[in-house]
Design a protein around this nucleic acid. Structure first.
Lengths: 347, 347
DNA sequence: CAGAATTTGGGGAACGTTTCCCAATGTTCG
DNA sequence: CGAACATTGGGAAACGTTCCCCAAATTCTG
């Protein structure tokens, strides 16, 4: 590493000198804190503008806040997360907070590395989207930094939670398909083995909602769940297994749009037409679902609202560390498109 | 804000005390710096493990490095960026650096806010993906922090550049279509007005590559570019305009897969079959292009390699701030799929 | 074996903020 | 009008590191 220095950054001391005040006063102005007269504020602001001063976030972090909010998401590949992020961003736009993103990957270890990194950087708060870490770990994090968990059910006194009602979402799909005349409605789930996480993960709640709705519609005997994974490949494999059934389903409810993509591939390969031969529904209402040639019936989760609620809760938690935790549950809605229709051979 | 404190974090002083050494020594061990014997190292590491110590990144930033690398991307919606990010992540996995992402939006102002935020947080280096800022601004950033620019042509002594050869990529598409027998090959470009940026933006280079290749194949008279925007809507509108031509094109080369999505929608709406009635090619080889029912011929940019090269250059620049800047240009390849075929009515 | 060079460990001053004070001045009120 | 109180501004001590030194001990060298 060589030693050549870019010109030294303007510091709060430079500003204080230039405005003929103390650094304390400048600091007060910066933070809109009590104890500086309007004239002082004006003078300081002018000096700041003239010198082009920007506070050093690292230094601020040593004593006060870093004005940084960390958002962890499993991957940036899922466009649904982008909606959540937009909601967060919009809500925080007019605050002094900056959002920085980190990817948590799909494992507990990589997720831990990322959350640790956020804590080490003294972020003022974190939003964890669909985390896979154990509940104990989540509580540990929440004990160290204001935390909001998104997209994972189950609550804790230590953190706030924002979810979409996956139970209702799954029911919406079953209702829709049932109303169209379907009886053999199968579901593709993500297989989860860890018992503690089991009930908190959205996929499990969707599966439960599916089961419940099937029973409610008198279709208890038709309940048929294939557990693969929430990936395109998982959908492909799941569909293949379902097609191999002696009495094969007339409709497939995939747990995510991604999964539906795989299902559609498998169906196309098998020479089946959608929705004439078989209906398909997804979950998340991604751009992909909306794309006309695909036209996938899907459940819309209002990602934007999820994000904006998460931001609101986080700001509240930052200012009231000890307030009782709250849970926000949003209601999804079904977007019906061309991939679902009446079954060709009514049961 | 209330005052309740989570238990104080373990500091370097606690470690020093616990290991019966000075903080200096602990610091040396942490940074693998010269001046600590193997025995000391062992002793210190043990203390670190016992206490569960983690260095405070904010405090480190005050004197030394933050071990943080900022990656700015315009949006997380474009799955191509995910490939680049994977490349970056893989390359940095075994280093002490942590990647944090920021979205730059689509404007110079929001991009400036994000880059400023990264600089304020003393990031050790930044990777800017497809930035829209002015060249002067990019050089200003590069003067303050080691910088690698990705996906934007044009070089500077101040920063390193990694691009894909968009000129060649566009030519690949034209060659392919021409070989199939197409002559009326139209192109949908992103309209850019700013003159300084004009030649550096990938879309401009693609358009130029298209023109050049058309001429090289004796199709100079058939050059037909519609300038809308690199969005799905831009593709939709562009396609509509092209279909309204008296002699309409037999093939459309969209500047991005996103754009091709819009094109496909417009074609479906017009009742045209792909590729029987008209061929379509995209750029970026996103998941969407690979999706079987779409099966879009597209140019693959090797995002992973782009990312891994960017990471390599950044690490080099961090350790040799003054080294001459380098430019890496990767070669794209064409992925032929079902959306392109022989023209139905040969010219 | 003396002197030089190297290795090892540590003391303490930065780094750029915020925040706890305290002092001076102005204001209110009984 | 004097005491209590509010307002305004600033001095200086944190915060948790790194890094420039220096001193002591050890090893090398001729």
């Amino acid at each position: 590493m060589d030693t050549s220095q870019p010109p030294r950054r303007v510091t709060i001391i430079d500003v204080a000198r230039h405005a003929n005040v103390s650094t304390t006063t400048v600091s007060k102005v910066l933070r809109n804190a009590y104890g500086a007269s309007p004239e002082m504020r004006a003078k300081v602001r002018e000096a700041i503008a003239e010198l082009g001063y920007r506070p050093d976030a690292a230094a601020r972090g040593m004593r006060g806040q870093t004005y940084t909010i960390g958002v962890m998401l499993p991957t940036i590949r899922n466009p649904f997360f982008a909606d959540i992020l937009d909601g967060l961003t919009d809500r925080l736009r007019d605050t002094d907070y900056q959002i920085l993103l980190g990817t948590g990957g799909d494992g507990e270890d990589t997720e831990e590395r990322m959350t640790d990194a956020m804590i080490d950087r003294r972020m003022d708060g974190v939003v964890l989207i669909a985390p896979v870490s154990s509940r104990a770990r989540l509580e540990q994090i929440a004990g160290l930094v204001p935390t909001v968990i998104v997209g994972r059910h189950g609550n804790s006194p230590l953190y706030d939670v924002v979810t979409d009602d996956d139970f209702v979402g799954a029911a919406l799909v079953v209702e829709h398909l049932s109303a169209l005349g379907h009886r053999r409605i199968a579901h593709i789930d993500h297989s989860e083995t860890d018992p503690t996480r089991l009930l908190e993960m959205p996929n499990a709640v969707r599966a439960e909602g599916y089961r419940h709705a099937m029973r409610a519609h008198g279709l208890a005997d038709e309940i048929d769940i294939v557990a693969t994974s929430y990936t395109q490949e998982g959908g492909y494999i799941g569909a293949q297994r379902l097609l191999a059934r002696p009495r094969r389903p007339t409709a497939i409810f995939a747990g995510a749009d991604f999964v539906a993509m795989g299902v559609l591939e498998a169906l196309a390969e098998a020479g089946l037409k959608v929705p004439e031969d078989i209906s398909v529904a997804g979950y998340d209402n991604t751009t992909f679902a909306a794309f006309a040639p695909v036209s996938l019936t899907s459940v819309d989760q209002a990602g934007h609202q999820i994000g904006s609620n998460a931001a609101r809760l986080l700001l509240e938690r930052i200012s009231h560390r000890q307030a009782p935790s709250s849970q926000v549950k949003l209601t999804p809605k079904l977007v019906v498109r061309g991939s679902t229709g009446r079954p060709s051979v009514p049961d």
